[in-house]
């Protein structure tokens, strides 16, 4: 069970990484990265539960990672859109675009 689940998740992660390598636009890469993050959460869960001495403590890490993944992706998208993390510059950018 352990080997089948880990192998399937790792194959999917590899496919996502290949897309991240070849992706023509930055959005393809972010999409692949997002999928990679989801699969990481699943891989942590599978390792926790199916490993022969079950280590249920690691589930907290998976929980945290699923939230960190979302925050990281939104931060990356914001950076690709505005080129900065500075709130003041983003407000100037927005006010300049919509008169």
């Amino acid at each position: 069970m352990y080997i089948v689940a880990s192998a399937a998740i790792l194959v999917t992660m590899t496919l996502a990484l290949i897309r991240a390598m070849f992706g023509p636009t930055v959005f393809d890469r972010v999409l692949a990265l997002n999928m990679f993050g989801t699969k990481t959460v699943l891989l942590i869960c599978a390792i926790c539960v199916l490993n022969t001495p079950a280590r249920h403590d690691f589930l907290d890490l998976a929980l945290l990672y699923s939230l960190m993944n979302f925050i990281g992706m939104v931060a990356l998208l914001r950076f690709t859109q505005y080129g900065t993390f500075d709130d003041v510059e983003i407000q100037q950018h927005n006010s300049g675009r919509q008169p």
Binding site: N34, L59, A62, L77, T80
Partner: peptide, 26 residues
């Protein structure tokens, strides 16, 4: 552990469409 797994599933199901929409909108 089952409750934690259920919460992880809930988070994944809430977060993944949000990030998908953020990506498409951007």
């Amino acid at each position: 552990a089952t409750v934690k797994l259920a919460m992880i599933l809930f988070f994944l199901l809430v977060v993944s469409p949000s990030s998908c929409h953020a990506l498409a909108k951007s």
